[in-house]
């Protein structure tokens, strides 16, 4: 098992922390993981991305050219990473703010209206948990049990009270993801 994933969007969307939860979930499942952020001047509103590799063998390169899965959360990232999904790979995106939709025919494309769902629920903070839930529905690389463990592990203790809401959002994310036929 080896999953090479990129999550790309705006700083402030929880891109890095979503990757961190997934990486921690991999650790809980006894997998090898690497989490490599684009670092530097990105801040709220700037672009941010993180490459996560989850594997049952040691991760050779944490730097990846072609991804098994790309989770795209803004147009700039769509422009940059659509072409970098492996043939047969998966592209997941939130339609919010996307004007040029992906056109590739050799990959599986999914949409998830996480921005709209978070707004409907009145809780912008669950946005990235919806995304994570949608991803895990399509690519169940780790068990839900280990995702919950990973989530808890990656949150500071003072934030544990948000665990039920986050877990519910992960489940909800799995319900609202749609395959583009």
């Amino acid at each position: 098992m080896k999953e090479e994933l990129i999550i790309a969007g705006f700083g402030g969307q929880g891109v890095l922390s979503t990757g961190k939860i997934l990486a921690y979930s991999g650790v809980m499942q006894d997998y090898e993981v690497s989490w490599l952020p684009s670092y530097g001047p990105e801040m709220r509103g700037g672009t941010a991305n993180v490459t996560v590799v989850v594997s049952d063998t040691p991760v050779s390169s944490p730097i990846v050219q072609m991804y098994d899965t790309a989770i795209i959360l803004n147009q700039q990232s769509m422009d940059k990473f659509e072409a970098r999904v492996k043939p047969g790979g998966v592209l997941i995106y939130d339609t919010n703010g996307i004007t040029h939709h992906p056109t590739r025919k050799d990959i599986e494309i999914y949409t998830i209206d996480a921005t709209a769902e978070a707004a409907r629920q009145g809780n912008a903070r669950i946005f990235n948990m919806l995304i994570l839930g949608g991803y895990l529905k399509v690519r169940p690389v780790v068990t839900m049990e280990n995702v919950y463990k990973g989530l808890k592990k990656s949150l500071p203790e003072r934030a544990w009270k948000t665990l039920p809401a986050n877990e519910a959002a992960i489940i909800r994310g799995g319900e609202i993801i749609r395959k583009v036929e």
């Binding site: 961190k20 990486a23 650790v27 690497s34 670092y39 991760v59 944490p62 730097i63």
Partner: peptide, 10 residues
């Protein structure tokens, strides 16, 4: 370098 410094691993 920045890769090893910024990367998270087990």
């Amino acid at each position: 370098d920045g890769v090893i410094g910024q990367m998270m691993e087990k």
